[in-house]
Design a protein around this nucleic acid. Structure first.
Length: 848
RNA sequence: GGGCGCAUAGCUCAGUUGGCUAGAGCGCUUCCCUUACAAGGAAGAUGUCGGGGGUUCGAGUCCCUCUGCGCCCACCA
């Protein structure tokens, strides 16, 4: 117990209490707790590729309020923190930060010093470094970034147990990721396949459907004439990608389209290249698009893939993995014509092809510009291409209706907050059109844990991958050697080769419950105590990635949904209702706001955003939060002045005055509502109810009974008032603690031992007072205040007499408040007379 | 094209199963240094509850419909 300070202040309480909480292990998870005593949280590991922003502060605060509530409600809270540091975002940051790029053909340099540490000049050309050197820099940068993240989240007051920290690149994560993936392979849930794949030409990796997004880009329709093989004129098609003409394998129109029905089964010749291609019918073709007949190329977009597959068309690939046209034409394409565009970028090739078509007369009219959506990797800068490559997939229902239905049904095991977020999940799952591509041609990630035997010709036998023993995990197939082989046999005919790819970052972060819970780690029984988890908090934008992928892995491995509740948080919006974006320069750093308003105030703003609802960034709300925190300190100081230093754990037995009981009845309602709010993961409602009571308590009730508490009406009245004040104070401090943990702890510490965050969640007093009894009395107080305000005198000014006119049924209540009102309003004479609506005749004492 | 959400005071939002004259905070106006708090306190003004129709004794709340805004998905020649 710290005692009451002279001048309560919020300054510095964050650092002070953070240290105490850490030292006392207030948030430490008890690993012996049984499953039904535990509340486990599948914390979203932030991507370690930059800085934490207000969106993080917003949603992490939401989760923390729930964690704190559950802890006070008696649960042993499993609240870990992780860092999502593997994958492309980190690689890109390393490239930009150090001015390097990974080139696996480079030799390792021991003790390598990067050219820069932070902000290389714009004209700097990235230095090519070996994969091990690159990975070392990844590790280095991630370590410093994570320290900064941890400091900020501690400052935010998150009640995480920092001893449970993990990172998605750490050894345990790699082990869990590889173990789960191997089991997917063994059960047939993961497979590798050579297939057309969405490909980012800058990152030079395959990407998944979930990571793809549309962006509006300018383009142009080009009308091209394909001469008919029978010599009867030409077929005109519109295309936005004339550069793919050499990759054309067919034309396609809708089967019902009478314009083209006579031509189905005939052939045409491609301009410039003279390749004979058939005219096909397919329902996917849209008669109202362009000329109603399209050229199919391998591959211009995803519908080309569909047509190519369903119409059994040949392959004429011309785009390489670097986004440039391949050096050699496909087999049956005139290589002389193709040579003029070989090696060009798609953009350069388009210019060249258009010029050639114009010269040959095959281009009809001028290109017609248009804006159209183009597919991008969500982190990419140039449009995705489609190339054929061998990749690993995990089955997610995209090619299997039965599995899809099972995954949709899993949503029913989860309570969604807010409920409509379930639709987004179902919508996504039902719209899947392919399995989950998990391999990436990148470097900083969990290696695909397989090798392939090489046949006599040195070709990999992909159908018979060599899998490691689980006990040896994690492995790196580029350095580790499969059982039964010698290191010298690597990449030798008859030997083996390691899979060079890594797993997509989601393939690991989809296992956060397993990673955090030390799934199948030797000597740990933790997982059984925390899984399935109670809560998955996350942004609604990653339902299709993180939420869904976690569901897929849990479904395959455990046949159960990984959590019982999913809490989806909204976006932060600019005050002008636009989604907050970094480019607009309107991003305020969290630390500045913590300094300006105090952490509690920022948390207050965050907690006022209802679950799942986009919320405007508002410093005004933070000011209100700061007021609340300040008020909590001040009213605590005031109430404790009456306790003679020892009013701790006030007994409600002493509360006898009906007004005090009425206040406690209101408090009981508040406790019930706040509890119901938190139970439903609605921290905003809990806050709103608590706050409404708190301000009423401070502004009205405390003012009303202040005099009595000062002993103006004898010791029984004072005892009742003080006991009621203390009961309410103790309760409010605990109700508000999940939202403003620092001010709550500070004020609690003045008169209690131990942390408020380890205290029991308040229960109702059950004293059965009449909550409404005190209302007309407060109303009279307000009328007296109004009279003074209108007379422009101090509230302390003396009142000669007050005549209250009120309906008969209020008289007894007002009588009960007579003495308190006289004190609070400095009223000499107080009368109650019969009347209709409540009104007051206030006669002020003459001022001198 | 399909799905979901939102629309209440100048602003940000509450309004839970339909029920007294529709609420809060911010902002605004006026006043007050009052022995917890002047980085405070008291009081006040402000609404065709997006439009139209329906159910009902009664609709911000339920049903239909229209409009506007936002998000997700599909389409992408």
């Amino acid at each position: 117990m710290a005692g009451i300070p002279e001048r309560p202040t919020l300054d510095g309480i964050e650092d002070r209490w953070s240290e105490v909480w850490e030292a006392d292990g207030v948030y430490r998870f008890d690993r012996t707790a049984a499953r039904d005593q535990v509340f486990s949280i599948d914390t979203p590991p932030p991507t370690v590729s930059g800085s934490l922003h207000m969106g993080h502060v917003f949603s992490y605060t939401h989760t923390d309020t729930i964690a704190r509530y559950q802890r006070m409600a008696g649960k042993d809270v499993f609240y870990p923190m992780g860092w999502d540091d593997n994958g492309l975002p980190t690689e890109r940051r390393v490239q930009n930060y150090y001015g390097v790029r990974c080139d696996p053909s480079q030799p390792y340099v021991a003790g390598f010093e990067p050219p820069f540490r932070g902000d290389p000049p714009k004209d700097h050309r990235a230095v090519a470094i070996s994969r091990p050197n690159f990975l070392e820099l990844c590790d280095e940068l991630v370590e410093t970034d994570e320290k900064i993240f941890e400091a900020l989240l501690r400052r935010l007051g998150l009640s995480v147990d920092w001893t449970l920290k993990y990172a998605t690149i750490d050894e345990r994560s790699r082990r869990a990721s590889q173990r789960a993936f191997l089991r997917n392979i063994e059960r047939g849930e993961a497979y590798s396949q050579e297939a057309p794949t969405l490909w980012d030409i800058d990152f030079r990796t395959a990407v998944a459907q979930a990571e793809m997004e549309d962006r509006e880009r300018p383009g142009a329709y080009h009308k091209i004439a394909f001469p008919r093989s029978d010599g009867e004129g030409a077929i005109e098609i519109d295309t936005t990608r004339p550069e793919l003409l050499a990759a054309c394998v067919a034309l396609v129109a809708h089967p019902d389209d009478e314009r083209y029905q006579p031509l189905f089964g005939t052939t045409v010749r491609t301009p410039l290249y003279g390749v004979e291609v058939p005219v096909h019918a397919h329902e996917l073709a849209q008669p109202d698009k362009g000329t109603g007949i399209a050229m199919i190329c391998t591959f211009g977009d995803t519908s080309d893939v569909t047509w190519w597959r369903e119409l059994n068309l040949p392959m004429r690939a011309i785009i390489g993995r670097d986004g440039r046209l391949l050096p050699d034409a496909p087999n049956d394409v005139d290589n002389a014509a193709y040579a003029t565009i070989a090696g060009l970028t798609t953009k350069q090739a388009q210019t060249a092809v258009v010029q050639q078509l114009t010269e040959s007369g095959a281009l009809l009219g001028e290109p017609r510009p248009l804006q159209h959506p183009v597919k991008f990797y969500e982190r990419g800068e140039r449009p995705l291409e489609i190339v054929t490559s061998r990749q690993w997939y995990i089955r997610n229902g995209g090619r299997d209706a039965e599995l899809r239905a099972e995954l949709v049904a899993r949503a029913g095991e989860v309570t969604w907050h807010p409920a409509h977020m379930r639709h987004r999940y179902e919508n996504w799952v039902e719209g899947l059109n392919g399995d989950w591509l998990v391999s990436r041609q990148r470097f900083f990630g969990v290696p695909v844990p397989v090798w392939y035997p090489l046949d006599a010709a040195g070709e990999p036998v992909y159908d018979a991958p060599l899998l490691p023993d689980e006990a040896l995990l994690p492995i790196d197939p580029s350095t580790d050697v499969p059982a039964g082989y010698e290191s010298a046999q690597r990449d030798q005919p008859g030997g083996f080769t390691g899979d060079a790819d890594i797993l997509d970052t989601w393939a690991t972060s989809s296992l956060t419950p397993e990673i955090a819970g030390r799934w199948e780690e030797e000597g740990s029984d933790l997982f059984g105590r925390i899984f399935p988890m109670d809560m998955r908090p996350q942004g609604h934008d990653i339902i299709r990635t993180w939420l869904f992928s976690t569901m897929v892995r849990s479904h395959h491995e455990f046949g159960v949904a990984p959590w019982s509740n999913a809490a989806l948080s909204g976006w932060i919006l600019d005050p002008d209702r636009k989604k907050m974006s970094k480019s607009k320069g309107n991003v305020v750093t969290p630390l500045d706001l913590f300094e300006t308003y105090g952490t509690d105030a920022v948390r207050y703003w965050a907690a006022s955003g209802r679950p799942g609802v986009d919320t405007a960034f508002s410093e005004d709300q933070m000011k209100v939060g700061r007021k609340l925190a300040t008020k909590l300190l001040n009213v605590t100081k005031f109430v404790l002045m009456f306790g003679e230093g020892e009013g701790v754990a006030a007994s409600t037995d002493a509360v006898t005055n009906p007004l005090d009981l009425s206040m406690l009845a209101k408090l009981d309602e508040t406790v019930a509502e706040a509890t119901a709010g938190f139970e439903a993961f609605d921290y905003a409602r809990a806050l709103e109810r608590t706050e409404a009571f708190f301000w009423w308590f401070c502004d009205d009730y405390v003012e009303l009974v202040k005099g009595r508490a000062y002993n103006s009406q004898g010791s029984d009245g004072a005892t009742s008032a003080v006991a009621a004040l203390q009961t309410a104070l103790s309760t409010v401090q605990r109700l508000i603690a999940p939202i403003v943990p620092f001010a709550a702890e500070e004020s609690w510490s003045w008169w209690n031992d131990g942390s408020v965050h380890a205290a029991a969640w308040p229960s109702t007093t059950g004293l059965g007072g009449d909550a409404k009894l005190v209302d007309p009395i407060i109303e009279v107080l307000t009328l007296v205040r109004r009279a003074k305000t209108e007379a422009k005198v101090s509230q302390r000014a003396e009142v000669t007499s007050v005549t209250v006119s009120a309906a008969d049924d209020l008289h007894s209540a007002i009588e009960l408040g007579r003495a308190d009102l006289a004190d609070a309003g400095t009223i000499k004479e107080f009368r109650v007379v019969a009347g209709q609506d409540l009104s007051c005749d206030v006669i002020l004492a003459p001022t001198t």
